[in-house]
Design a protein around this nucleic acid. Structure first.
Lengths: 238, 238
DNA sequence: TGATCAAGTTTGGTCGTACAAAACGGAATC
DNA sequence: GATTCCGTTTTGTACGACCAAACTTGATCA
């Protein structure tokens, strides 16, 4: 893959500092949620000017390896797949300013959840199914609660991702929710629509319960297709 | 999603410059592969010091919006989903230093390709199938070519991603290839193994040709499972 | 006339310094 | 012991300078 910075040969002083600190984070010399050494200390350690040190810190921050707050020491962030999705946030938002981008990303969501539903139907444990049932009941309980339903809706889908047991999917879920939320947020809600969504979720749950991947996928696709049509009408896509 | 930089309220001077340039890239005032104005020019435009301007450029570079090379003007990069995967490269590599990370990512690959195979079986056009056939024939032709087979192998899988017609998947393919290539690279190759892979590809192709999603998925999973076992033995995972 | 080469100029990379504002740490106070 | 206050540390921002590499220009030569 093309590197983001084609340094053309490790010429930049900041890059070597970034690499050094990256290595320290990776091998644990710099622990999670521990502050980085002060800028002056880093200057001395790496024999570089503060300009360079700060540049390195900015780079680490943008890559999501450290968390910076104005006037506070940068804090080391644990590496995880969630970090990755978080660090792409600003760029993804750009792509979403194009309606086509929204559609492409939504397609990915449908693809992912269709597969996850199949997988859940085929392999979900009793505990997983219990989780799903709990989420479904929370759904039902908040049908008439315009504000609260959205959260239980997201949570239900989240269980689907969690069932996979793969942190990448958990991270993907968080990412998709954050990215597609703006669209969702502006949709009008009503007890009727909530009930419709609840029933759709129930259909998915039932299919998983019956260990029927095809039915699970079908129910899920129908559910998301319905939601997409609602969104695309609202935003006059296509 | 948690933002990478908890700026605590748009305090930093560099941020406003970043936003301004981001906007110019987004709306096309700054075209793809066009150089940014010089740092001294930007200083004047935004009334900031070069320190701040450089910080802004670094941020843009780390977000993948511009490509910087030492001693060259930063070049605007077209926004695309591929850019996103590229910009996460260094962090992903960290996660892959943990065997568990490799496994998680490989699982994602299997998940994605299983779904793509189903989708291809269900919806591939004649042209798509032709592409797949071409890739398959290239496979067959290079069975005895230890060096060349890998590329045709990758290309075959690439067609699967391309069939989706979604740029996110195309980008995902590039990303996965780059990330998982190191593992692949160290595997011993032989005409026998190449032939095995070719036959596996052929099974996938046949299933797609017969419009049988279940068989396509099954063939693909078998193929990747086989490859994984080979990798995990080589690297003594699990 | 057209290609080549050697100036000078522009530009990014690095450094040192400076200063205000915020956070930190410890002493003094209640 | 908890709180307040003040001096110290540290970050955010800025200015100016220098170097080396890349670009530009124009003179030179075939």
């Amino acid at each position: 893959m093309a590197q983001v910075k084609a340094t053309g040969g490790e010429n930049r002083a900041a890059d070597s500092i970034v690499s050094a600190i990256e290595a320290q984070i990776a091998d644990g010399r710099l622990q999670d949620s521990q502050p980085l050494p002060s800028e002056r200390e880093l200057m001395e350690t790496y024999g570089a000017s503060r300009t360079v040190v700060r540049e390195a810190i900015t780079a680490l921050s943008n890559r999501g390896l450290v968390l910076t707050r104005p006037r506070f020491r940068p804090i080391v962030q644990k590496l995880g797949f969630d970090t990755i999705f978080a660090s792409t946030d600003s760029v993804v938002r750009h792509l979403l300013s194009n309606p086509n981008g929204v559609k492409n990303l939504y397609e990915v969501r449908v693809f992912a959840e269709a597969g996850l539903a199949r997988q859940a139907a085929a392999h979900a444990t009793r505990e997983h199914i219990q989780d799903l049932k709990s989420a479904l009941m929370a759904n039902e309980a908040s049908i008439s609660n315009s504000e609260g339903f959205y959260e239980t809706d997201v949570a239900f889908h989240g269980v689907l991702y969690a069932i996979s047991g793969n942190p990448v999917f958990a991270a993907l879920h968080d990412g998709l929710v954050a990215w597609l939320a703006p669209q969702w947020d502006q949709m009008k809600r009503s007890p009727e629509r909530n009930e419709g969504n609840y029933l759709a979720h129930k259909a998915i749950y039932d299919a998983i319960l019956e260990r029927d991947p095809d039915a699970a996928e079908e129910a899920l696709r129908a559910h998301l297709k319905n939601a997409w049509e609602y969104v695309s009408v609202t935003f006059e896509f296509e």
